[in-house]
Design a protein around this nucleic acid. Structure first.
Length: 384
DNA sequence: ACTTCAATAT
DNA sequence: CATATTGAAG
């Protein structure tokens, strides 16, 4: 109890007041009990403890409350937060290159709201990394090994490394599969399997079939970022260099190129639009349905301006990080141990200015909000 | 019907 | 190498 008394003293409250404060607190976080189950529980316990202390008798702590909030309970009356779990865990992260765990994320808070009647409202998950991060939770990590055949495809089983974990269904297959390739869609015959061996995916695949999609697992992406950062940012890095740094075998330049393209695309200002009105800091939270959630933009902004700690706290995991945002990536003892290309060569004329992309030294850093893509506005996508 | 994303094509 | 287009998947 010392714990409580101390707190109360600090707050200059007596048990009754403290209890009341706690209850209020509990009420506030109740909506998030799903997201913050422990907090909820802690507060609840604290209340009970205080009550016991106060009256010496055991009183029910939930007079008015429900001790638990079932997820679906809320759904009955409207929108409900579907996913939003900030679990940032990199449990299974690669053993090898964990040194730079850093903030790999910025805005990836997503607010997904689900209206019972409307299925495709804003389910915009903010970004492309969605895939990256959900897929292949397990970092095969075994980079050393020969594995990671290009042909591999892992089904999402977002767990381990994944930062998000949708609370609903979600089956997780054993992560075992390191490499598993798709069944021959057609032409390819089973023949290969017999003698030689297993992996030679690209080999016998006669005709032109499109190459198996490469799955950018979390680990892979991590390496990608790592490389990127060593190279001074997405804008100065080139596919080849990246690939080399990544040192993943089986990875091709094209794959890296493609990924880089996407990365750049998403990374750079997705939203030219300004949210004039409210100052950024004014509204870290937005009201969604009947719940407040942190707005992604805010998180993004926070990353750039505010310090990292804020970021880490508020922003759950994302995958793509500001990358080079700051200095000292990994091993960077001497400034010039690695070269920083910085400016790209601009071929000749053209490049009709206006492009925002001319970063200056430092290494890039767009820490803007890629939040993306989405929301509401329809178009924006090339397809159509 | 739409979006996202890696693979290709330029 | 950068970008644009394609085609597959969700």
């Amino acid at each position: 109890m010392y714990f409580f008394t101390e707190k109360m003293q600090r707050l200059k409250m007596g048990f009754p007041d403290y209890i009341q404060a706690l209850e209020e607190e509990r009420r506030k976080i109740q909506v998030f009990c799903k997201e913050l189950p422990l907090s909820f529980e802690l507060v609840t316990q604290a209340i009970e403890a205080c009550r016991q202390q106060l009256s010496g008798t055991t009183s029910e702590y939930n007079l008015n409350g429900q001790s638990e909030c079932s997820e679906r309970t809320t759904s009955s009356e409207g929108p409900v937060l579907e996913e939003f779990i900030p679990i940032k865990k990199r449990a299974s992260s690669s053993p090898c290159c964990d040194e730079d765990d850093e903030d790999y994320e910025q805005h990836s808070l997503r607010q997904t709201v689900l209206n019972e009647d409307n299925k495709n409202n804003d389910k915009r998950k903010s970004d492309w990394l969605r895939s990256v991060q959900l897929w292949n939770p397990d970092p095969p990590a075994e980079e050393d090994a020969t594995k990671k055949v290009p042909g591999m495809e892992l089904k999402r089983s977002g767990s381990g490394g994944g930062a998000f974990q949708p609370f609903h269904k979600e089956e997780r297959a054993a992560k075992a599969t390191e490499t598993l390739y798709k069944a021959p869609s057609s032409t390819r015959v089973a023949a290969a399997s017999s003698s030689a061996g297993e992996l030679t995916p690209e080999k016998n695949q006669n005709e032109g079939q499109r190459k198996q999609r490469r799955c950018w697992s979390q680990d892979l992406h991590k390496r990608f970022l790592h490389a990127l950062q060593q190279l001074g940012g997405a804008d100065s890095a080139t596919p080849k260099q990246i690939r080399e740094l990544m040192n993943v075998d089986g990875l091709t330049n094209d794959e890296v190129k493609s990924h880089l393209q996407k990365y750049r695309l998403h990374t750079r200002r997705p939203s030219p639009l300004v949210h004039n009105s409210s100052s950024p800091q004014a509204a870290p939270f937005v009201l969604v349905g009947n719940i407040f959630v942190q707005s992604p933009e805010y998180a993004a902004v926070a990353t750039s301006t505010a310090s990292r700690e804020v970021t880490t706290v508020t922003a759950p995991a994302g995958v793509y990080a500001p990358v080079a945002t700051h200095p000292t990536p990994v091993s960077q003892p001497s400034a010039d141990s690695i070269k920083k290309p910085q400016f790209k060569k601009f071929k000749h004329s053209e490049h009709s200015n206006s492009d925002e992309r001319g970063h200056h030294s430092e290494g890039a850093v767009h820490s803007n909000s890629p939040t993306s893509s989405s929301s509401t506005h329809t178009s924006a996508s090339p397809s159509y």
